[in-house]
Each structure stands twice: as C-alpha cells, then as structure tokens.
Simulated assay, not measured.
Amino acid sequence: MKTQAALMLGAGQDWTVTEIDLDAPRAGEVLVEFTHAGLCFSDEHLRHGSLGALPAVGGHEGAGIIRELGEGVTGLKVGDHVAASFIPACGHCDWCVTGHSNLCDSAANSPGSVDKDSFRFSYDGDRIPANCGLGTFARYSVVSANAVIRVNPEIPLEAVAVASCGVLTGWGAAVHAAEVAVGDTVIVIGAGGVGVNAVQGARFAGAKEVILVDMNPAKLGIARQFGATAEFRTTEEALTYARQVNPRAQGADKVIVCTGNTTEAVVTAAYETLGKRGTLVLAGMSQDVLDRNVNLPGTQIIFREQTIRGTIFGSCNPRHDIPVVLDLYAQGRIKLDELVTKQYSLEEINAGFDDLRAGKNLRGVVKHA
C-alpha cells in the first residue's frame, strides 16, 4: 500500500513529505493508522544524524488505531486505540521479567538496525527504517505488536500521543528515577514537554517545592499550572531559593535535567544546585548522543553522598505506566490537553520543528488528515 510520510533524507536537511510504499504486516506485526504524532527533540537528534541510518521515516511519539493484524498477534484487535511505545517490550527478556521493560533487548529495533528485512517502508526502491521502529510521521505504519499499547478508546488520541513519550519520560524521571519523596525540594531544568511533566510527577509524588528553570520567559509563564512552586531563568537563582527553603541539604534533594540539548555546561550547572545526599537525574539527551557531557567533581560527590543517574523513558514500564497516566488524566488529576500548544498538518511539519527549536511550544502535534 501507499502512505504519506515525513522522511529525513540526509543529516541536517528539512523533513521531506512524500508518498512511500508500505508492506503488509508479517507475523507478530500490526498495521497502525497513526492519527497523531508528537514533535519531540529525539526526532531532532535523528535529523542531526546521531540516531542511526538515513534516510528514515521520522516519528516515535504517537497514537492511532489498529487496522490489520499479522499472523499470531494476540491481545490486540482491529479497531483498538493504541499508544506507540518507542521501546517495544518483549515481555520475556531478563530486563522485562525483572521490571525494567524500558531497557528491553528489543530496543535494538531502531533506525540504525542493519537488518533491512525488518524494514516495512520503501522509498525510491530501497527499504528504509522508521525511527524507533515506529515511524509515526507516516499516516500508516507496520510495527511490532510489542511496540503498541492498547488504551481506553474514550481518551482523545492527541492526549494519548503525548503520553506515549514526553509525558512518561518526564513523569517517570521524577516518580521512578529521582524517586521524589514527600517533602522534597526538586529542581527541574528545562520547561519543554518533558520538563513540565517532570514537574507534574514531582508534585504528584509529594514534593514540597518544585522549582523550574528555563531561559524562555514564555515557558515560565505557564509552568505553575503544572505544579511549579517557583520559576527562575538561571540555576544560580534556583540554587539561592533552594537553599532558603531547604537549609538542611543546602540545595535541592532532586535535580532533573530535561533540556533538549544537554551539554556539559548544562550538566555542570545542574549539579551545582544539588544538595547533600541529593540525586541528579539526566532525562534530556545531548544533540550528539555520544558527546561526553558529564565532567563532575567525583570527590565532592563522595563527600556529599550524591547520586548521578540517567533515565530512558522515565524508567517506566510503558505497558503499565501509560494506562496509569491516562487514567489519572481521565480523573482530572494530571494535565495532558494543556501540553498541546499547537497542531500541525503533516505538510507543516518543518514549521512545527521550527517552533520546537524556538521554544514556542510545550508540545506540537501532527494531526494526520
């Protein structure tokens, strides 16, 4: 079949929207009509050529409807509403069975895969990969049944789309990775789609203070509706405030870095706000995913008994946590609608990424026609 899709043909280029070929689902796969796709900085990293082979179909955050099942697929049916999971959970590798499905070995299903037989998209006569094995920037995509999660059909699919990556990454960075506790003072650096959900997660976990840092004043202007108790444009200002409200630790108990391009300067500034026995969580990637961006005083970390850790997908188990977050949304206990600043057609995808880079949106969403 044919489908419209946004492709990244070469590093540093704009997205190309064109019609490409799509194979039918094979055993263990499903055909999904993606209705919505989130615009996330991870696809910006793909554009820079640091997430695998190009050309590739973009998009790893999204929601849609199952249209066809491959042989042997169970637990799903045609018509099901689903969230995309950019890390497919096989359910039987060691990571999955020990409760860490965000580290599932199936995550090898990525744009950098060399197994072209696993690719279902074709462009200009050649098979091409989809970002994270999903390709939500295509209206139709064939994906592993392990890479979609059935959700309540009463929940709007645009809310499901943002929950599938950015929300879970930020929420889980606070709840699971940082393990925010009642009474904690938390600093979140970066007020994009991941950062504001780290704020929501920290507030939900019982933090006393949730301090948001972002240089963009427009982002700070809306942060309080997601649970921020204070907002600053610099980490120095945030540290001064954290020391006032948390004199015991002389800094933050938890610091969560959610920047779109996490440089060494960002990591160093974030660490300097961390108090005694504090935890620094890196949830935002560097533009070059192999960049050595952590250069910290190890002996000071020893003296202060501090923890530095990374998190992928917010250390969530997506098959469990996506429904949980969507249930909280349905109960009015967390905000998802307010995250979607603007919707774009697929043809407007380059304008959407321009707005993302300019810091105009919490989350832009492509709505497939």
Rank of each mutant, 00 (worst) to 15 (best):
residue 195 G to Q: 10
residue 195 G to L: 10
residue 195 G to N: 10
residue 196 V to C: 09
residue 196 V to M: 15
residue 196 V to A: 08
residue 196 V to N: 07
residue 197 N to K: 12
residue 197 N to T: 15
residue 197 N to D: 15
residue 198 A to F: 10
residue 198 A to T: 15
residue 198 A to V: 14
residue 199 V to F: 07
residue 199 V to P: 10
residue 199 V to H: 05
residue 199 V to T: 14
residue 200 Q to H: 11
residue 200 Q to C: 10
residue 200 Q to W: 10
residue 200 Q to V: 13
residue 201 G to I: 15
residue 201 G to K: 13
residue 202 A to N: 08
residue 202 A to S: 14
residue 202 A to R: 04
residue 203 R to T: 14
residue 203 R to L: 04
residue 204 F to Q: 13
residue 204 F to K: 12
residue 204 F to N: 11
residue 204 F to G: 03
residue 205 A to H: 10
residue 206 G to S: 11
residue 206 G to P: 14
residue 206 G to H: 13
residue 207 A to N: 08
residue 208 K to E: 15
residue 208 K to M: 14
residue 208 K to F: 12
residue 208 K to T: 15
residue 209 E to L: 10
residue 210 V to D: 01
residue 210 V to Q: 00
residue 210 V to Y: 00
residue 211 I to G: 05
residue 211 I to A: 03
residue 211 I to E: 02
residue 211 I to R: 01
residue 212 L to P: 04
residue 212 L to R: 01
residue 213 V to M: 02
residue 213 V to C: 04
residue 213 V to R: 00
residue 213 V to I: 06
residue 214 D to A: 06
residue 214 D to Y: 11
residue 214 D to T: 09
residue 215 M to C: 02
residue 215 M to L: 07
residue 215 M to D: 08
residue 216 N to M: 08
residue 216 N to K: 06
residue 216 N to I: 12
residue 217 P to S: 03
residue 217 P to Y: 00
residue 218 A to P: 00
residue 219 K to I: 11
residue 219 K to D: 09
residue 220 L to K: 04
residue 222 I to Y: 03
residue 223 A to N: 06
residue 223 A to G: 13
residue 224 R to L: 00
residue 224 R to Q: 13
residue 224 R to A: 11
residue 225 Q to Y: 00
residue 225 Q to E: 12
residue 225 Q to M: 02
residue 225 Q to G: 00
residue 225 Q to K: 02
residue 225 Q to V: 01
residue 227 G to T: 09
residue 227 G to F: 01
residue 227 G to I: 07
residue 227 G to M: 05
residue 228 A to P: 14
residue 228 A to M: 08
residue 228 A to W: 00
residue 229 T to I: 08
residue 229 T to D: 02
residue 229 T to P: 15
residue 230 A to S: 12
residue 230 A to N: 09
residue 230 A to V: 10
residue 230 A to K: 09
residue 230 A to L: 04
residue 230 A to Y: 03
residue 231 E to N: 11
residue 231 E to H: 01
residue 231 E to K: 01
residue 232 F to I: 12
residue 232 F to A: 03
residue 233 R to G: 09
residue 233 R to M: 10
residue 233 R to C: 01
residue 234 T to F: 09
residue 234 T to Y: 05
residue 234 T to S: 11
residue 234 T to V: 08
residue 234 T to L: 05
residue 234 T to I: 07
residue 235 T to R: 00
residue 235 T to Q: 01
residue 236 E to I: 09
residue 236 E to Q: 12
residue 237 E to N: 07
residue 237 E to T: 09
residue 237 E to D: 14
residue 238 A to K: 02
residue 238 A to P: 15
residue 238 A to H: 05
residue 239 L to H: 05
residue 239 L to K: 06
residue 240 T to E: 15
residue 240 T to A: 14
residue 241 Y to H: 15
residue 241 Y to T: 12
residue 241 Y to A: 03
residue 241 Y to G: 06
residue 241 Y to W: 13
residue 242 A to D: 11
residue 242 A to V: 14
